[in-house]
Amino acid sequence: MKNEKIMLKSGRGIIWIDPKILDFLENYVPWIHILEKKGACTDETCQVIYRATVDRYDPARSGECIEISSGNMKVMLQKDVYESIDNSRQEIYLTKSIAGGLKIKGFTYSP
Protein backbone atom coordinates (compact mmCIF):
# COMPACT_ATOMS: atom_id res chain seq x y z
CA MET A 1 0.00 0.00 0.00
CA LYS A 2 2.80 2.35 0.93
CA ASN A 3 4.33 1.90 -2.49
CA GLU A 4 1.20 2.74 -4.42
CA LYS A 5 0.56 6.12 -5.96
CA ILE A 6 -2.06 8.15 -4.17
CA MET A 7 -4.81 9.58 -6.31
CA LEU A 8 -6.40 12.97 -5.71
CA LYS A 9 -9.33 13.95 -7.89
CA SER A 10 -9.03 17.47 -9.19
CA GLY A 11 -12.24 18.25 -11.05
CA ARG A 12 -12.23 16.00 -14.09
CA GLY A 13 -8.52 15.42 -13.79
CA ILE A 14 -6.26 13.55 -11.37
CA ILE A 15 -3.18 14.37 -9.34
CA TRP A 16 -1.03 11.36 -8.61
CA ILE A 17 1.25 11.52 -5.59
CA ASP A 18 4.49 9.58 -5.77
CA PRO A 19 4.70 7.37 -2.65
CA LYS A 20 8.41 8.24 -2.32
CA ILE A 21 7.51 11.75 -1.20
CA LEU A 22 5.06 10.81 1.52
CA ASP A 23 7.62 11.34 4.25
CA PHE A 24 8.44 14.72 2.78
CA LEU A 25 4.76 15.68 2.87
CA GLU A 26 4.24 14.96 6.53
CA ASN A 27 4.61 18.59 7.60
CA TYR A 28 4.37 20.13 4.20
CA VAL A 29 1.31 21.21 2.25
CA PRO A 30 2.29 21.53 -1.41
CA TRP A 31 1.06 24.59 -3.27
CA ILE A 32 1.03 24.11 -7.03
CA HIS A 33 1.05 27.37 -8.91
CA ILE A 34 2.08 28.82 -12.24
CA LEU A 35 5.36 30.53 -12.88
CA GLU A 36 5.56 32.40 -16.12
CA LYS A 37 8.64 33.17 -18.07
CA LYS A 38 9.21 34.85 -21.39
CA GLY A 39 10.40 32.29 -23.90
CA ALA A 40 13.31 32.49 -26.28
CA CYS A 41 11.08 33.80 -29.07
CA THR A 42 10.80 37.58 -29.06
CA ASP A 43 7.88 37.73 -31.50
CA GLU A 44 4.84 39.27 -29.81
CA THR A 45 2.66 36.44 -31.11
CA CYS A 46 4.72 33.84 -29.26
CA GLN A 47 3.32 33.02 -25.87
CA VAL A 48 4.81 33.21 -22.46
CA ILE A 49 5.96 29.88 -21.00
CA TYR A 50 3.77 28.70 -18.16
CA ARG A 51 5.26 26.12 -15.83
CA ALA A 52 3.65 24.50 -12.85
CA THR A 53 5.87 24.67 -9.84
CA VAL A 54 5.55 23.44 -6.27
CA ASP A 55 6.24 25.40 -3.12
CA ARG A 56 5.16 25.17 0.48
CA TYR A 57 1.68 26.53 0.97
CA ASP A 58 1.63 29.88 2.73
CA PRO A 59 -1.83 31.40 3.14
CA ALA A 60 -0.32 34.87 3.35
CA ARG A 61 1.19 34.82 -0.10
CA SER A 62 -0.56 32.03 -1.93
CA GLY A 63 -3.65 34.01 -2.87
CA GLU A 64 -6.89 32.35 -3.96
CA CYS A 65 -6.42 28.57 -3.90
CA ILE A 66 -8.48 25.45 -4.25
CA GLU A 67 -7.89 22.63 -1.80
CA ILE A 68 -7.73 19.06 -3.03
CA SER A 69 -7.57 16.42 -0.37
CA SER A 70 -8.03 12.77 0.31
CA GLY A 71 -7.66 11.45 3.82
CA ASN A 72 -4.62 13.15 5.34
CA MET A 73 -3.24 14.14 1.97
CA LYS A 74 -3.85 17.77 1.02
CA VAL A 75 -2.67 19.81 -1.95
CA MET A 76 -3.44 23.47 -2.63
CA LEU A 77 -3.90 24.50 -6.25
CA GLN A 78 -3.84 27.94 -7.77
CA LYS A 79 -7.14 28.52 -9.55
CA ASP A 80 -5.56 28.45 -13.05
CA VAL A 81 -3.85 25.15 -12.22
CA TYR A 82 -7.12 23.61 -11.09
CA GLU A 83 -8.95 24.85 -14.18
CA SER A 84 -6.23 23.58 -16.51
CA ILE A 85 -6.32 20.11 -14.95
CA ASP A 86 -10.11 20.11 -14.93
CA ASN A 87 -10.69 21.46 -18.44
CA SER A 88 -8.26 19.13 -20.18
CA ARG A 89 -8.80 16.19 -17.81
CA GLN A 90 -5.11 16.00 -17.16
CA GLU A 91 -3.29 13.45 -15.06
CA ILE A 92 -0.33 15.10 -13.40
CA TYR A 93 2.30 13.68 -11.12
CA LEU A 94 3.71 15.18 -7.97
CA THR A 95 7.10 13.70 -7.47
CA LYS A 96 10.60 14.39 -6.22
CA SER A 97 12.92 16.66 -8.16
CA ILE A 98 16.64 16.11 -8.67
CA ALA A 99 17.35 19.04 -6.35
CA GLY A 100 15.51 17.33 -3.51
CA GLY A 101 12.34 19.36 -3.61
CA LEU A 102 9.08 18.60 -5.40
CA LYS A 103 8.13 18.91 -9.03
CA ILE A 104 5.15 18.46 -11.28
CA LYS A 105 5.16 16.28 -14.35
CA GLY A 106 2.60 16.13 -17.14
CA PHE A 107 0.98 19.53 -16.62
CA THR A 108 -0.20 21.72 -19.49
CA TYR A 109 -1.47 25.22 -18.86
CA SER A 110 -4.91 25.52 -20.49
CA PRO A 111 -7.36 27.46 -18.31
Binding site: K37, G39, A40, C41, T45, C46, Q47, I49, Y50, R51, S88, F107, T108, Y109, S110, P111
Partner: peptide, 20 residues
Protein backbone atom coordinates in the same frame (compact mmCIF):
# COMPACT_ATOMS: atom_id res chain seq x y z
CA UNK B 1 -7.48 33.92 -30.06
CA UNK B 2 -3.69 33.67 -30.31
CA UNK B 3 -3.45 33.47 -26.52
CA UNK B 4 -5.38 30.18 -26.49
CA UNK B 5 -3.53 26.99 -25.61
CA UNK B 6 -3.58 23.60 -27.24
CA UNK B 7 -2.29 20.70 -25.18
CA UNK B 8 0.37 19.88 -27.76
CA UNK B 9 1.91 23.29 -27.09
CA UNK B 10 3.49 21.83 -23.99
CA UNK B 11 6.22 20.59 -26.31
CA UNK B 12 6.76 24.17 -27.46
CA UNK B 13 7.03 25.33 -23.84
CA UNK B 14 9.64 22.72 -22.94
CA UNK B 15 11.55 23.47 -26.13
CA UNK B 16 11.50 27.23 -25.49
CA UNK B 17 12.48 26.83 -21.84
CA UNK B 18 15.70 24.95 -22.60
CA UNK B 19 16.31 26.39 -26.03
CA UNK B 20 18.99 29.01 -25.46
Amino acid sequence: ASSGRAKVQRIADVFSYYFV
